[in-house]
Amino acid sequence: MNEIEIIRRAQAGDMAAFEQIVQTYEKRVIMAAMQVCRNQQDAEDITQDVFVSVYRNIGSFRFEASFYSWIYRITINMAFNHSRQKKYHEFLISEDNDDHYYAIAEDETTEFSENTDFQAVLDSVLKKLPEKQRTVFIMRYNQHLKIKEIAVILNIGEGTVKKYLFRAQEKLRVLLKPFKNQLFKD
């Protein structure tokens, strides 16, 4: 049975077909959610919400895009919502407060040395990006999606994607400056 047939059966209420869909995509959905929230427990919660949403809305899937990109879009939106619900915004810095990034880089206490755990710093820097910038950035640099693909998945304009990407890059450039030598020492 091919995927289209399985989806059609699931749309008609066949639970076995739906479970097959879950089995096919659950790992990829968890991975995609983990890229955004960088935490497996949260990713698992998001994955459950994603498939409940897929179940509710599978009837509206019209085979105009690939099924995975449809699920992926739901996943990203769910990951956004989850971030909000978990009050991640406490850790996020509003776009109006960009000066804070420059302050981090210029702060004497943030003088990174060879011994500084670069990976941990980068991880925490990414978490501190506003969620839209972070998501666009991760989709572009971690999942290697093109601007157009990101725009379609997030249902925003290509110009908006570029804007988020530029802002994220700008912040990261400042924050990564101290690591430049370390990154290019080879």
Binding site: F118, Y141, N142, L172, R173, L176, L183, F184
Partner: peptide, 8 residues
């Protein structure tokens, strides 16, 4: 810079 950083 970012590509190198992401590889790390």
């Amino acid at each position: 810079l970012i590509t190198r950083a992401m590889q790390e």
